[in-house]
Amino acid sequence: MLDNQAEATPDRRPAIVICAYDTAETGWDPVEDLSGIAWNPQGARTVPVNGADPETLALTLENHLRDRNCRALLLVGRTLQGDSFRVQMRAENRLSDGTGRQDDTGPGLARATAPVAEIVRALNEAGLAASASSESEADAGSYLLYRILSSLPDGTDSPAIGLLRAPAASSDASVQRGVKAAAATMARHLSPLPRRHLY
């Protein structure tokens, strides 16, 4: 009887969408063991989104963020710039190949809303060399970061949105450790969802 009640109770933890946007990425696997249950940081639940072409992914991620229970988005990709993890602080108004503007009327830059400094600190504490960077890279990650940030409606409580880049040569285990450190840090900043009262 208790199990049935537990199953019927909605999960009131805020959601963090984690998206490894490159279809060839193998480093981030949300399912840790044979249980088939995705990893979740304390106080939040993860919603994994698989890689796809940038336009399809942008629409999928925008739809997730329209859900008021979704309070954060962590994009996960690779960097060719150096051998440490990078947390990208901003994205330029560019197409995914780096040419031209993706939005003729949009601002030139969009700034990440995730707690960048704390994520970098958490990565370092997890034994991973990491830094914050203002430099965009001409790829789907920068395209998605700008697209998602610039599509947020005005006057709302903005979700935490960030882009974590792992070094190109990082092992899957290192990527897993980095994603968990970043997502757990973001989760600490999320407010609990309001309780629903039945009358």
Score class of each variant (00 low, 15 high):
M1Y: 11
N4A: 11
Q5V: 14
E7W: 07
E7Q: 14
A8R: 13
A8M: 09
P10E: 15
D11G: 10
I18Q: 12
Y21A: 01
D22S: 12
T23I: 08
A24E: 10
T26C: 15
G27A: 09
D29G: 09
D29A: 12
P30I: 02
D33L: 15
D33A: 13
S35Q: 14
I37W: 00
I37D: 04
I37R: 07
I37M: 05
I37N: 02
W39D: 01
N40Q: 03
N40T: 00
A44T: 00
V47N: 01
V47F: 04
P48K: 00
V49H: 03
V49D: 04
A52D: 15
E55Q: 08
T56P: 00
L57Q: 08
A58V: 01
L59A: 13
L59Y: 04
T60A: 08
L61A: 10
E62Q: 13
N63Y: 08
H64N: 14
L65E: 05
R66Q: 14
D67W: 15
C70W: 11
R71Q: 05
L73I: 06
L73S: 03
L73Y: 03
L75E: 06
G77Q: 00
T79D: 05
T79C: 06
D83E: 11
S84V: 12
S84P: 02
F85L: 13
F85P: 04
V87K: 01
E92G: 11
E92F: 04
N93W: 04
L95S: 09
S96C: 04
S96T: 04
D97C: 07
T99A: 15
T99Q: 15
T99R: 14
R101T: 02
Q102W: 06
D103F: 09
D103A: 12
D104S: 01
P107D: 03
P107S: 04
G108C: 07
L109C: 06
T113R: 02
T113Q: 04
T113N: 05
A114L: 15
V116T: 09
V116Q: 09
V116C: 15
V116D: 13
A117C: 02
V120Y: 00
R121M: 07
A122T: 03
L123V: 04
E125P: 04
A129F: 12
A129P: 10
A129Q: 15
A130R: 07
A132F: 13
S134P: 07
S136C: 15
A138W: 03
A138N: 15
D139V: 01
A140R: 02
A140D: 07
G141W: 08
Y143T: 02
Y143S: 02
L145G: 13
L145W: 12
I148M: 09
I148E: 06
L149E: 09
S151L: 08
P153R: 05
T156N: 10
D157G: 03
S158Y: 07
S158A: 14
I161P: 14
I161M: 11
G162R: 05
R165G: 00
A166C: 00
A166Y: 00
P167G: 03
S170P: 03
S170L: 01
D172R: 09
A173H: 05
A173F: 02
A173T: 09
S174V: 07
V175W: 06
V175F: 08
A181G: 11
A181T: 08
A183M: 05
A183Y: 05
A183E: 01
M186P: 08
L190K: 07
S191A: 14
S191T: 09
L193F: 06
L193Q: 12
P194E: 12
R195N: 08
R195K: 13
H197R: 09
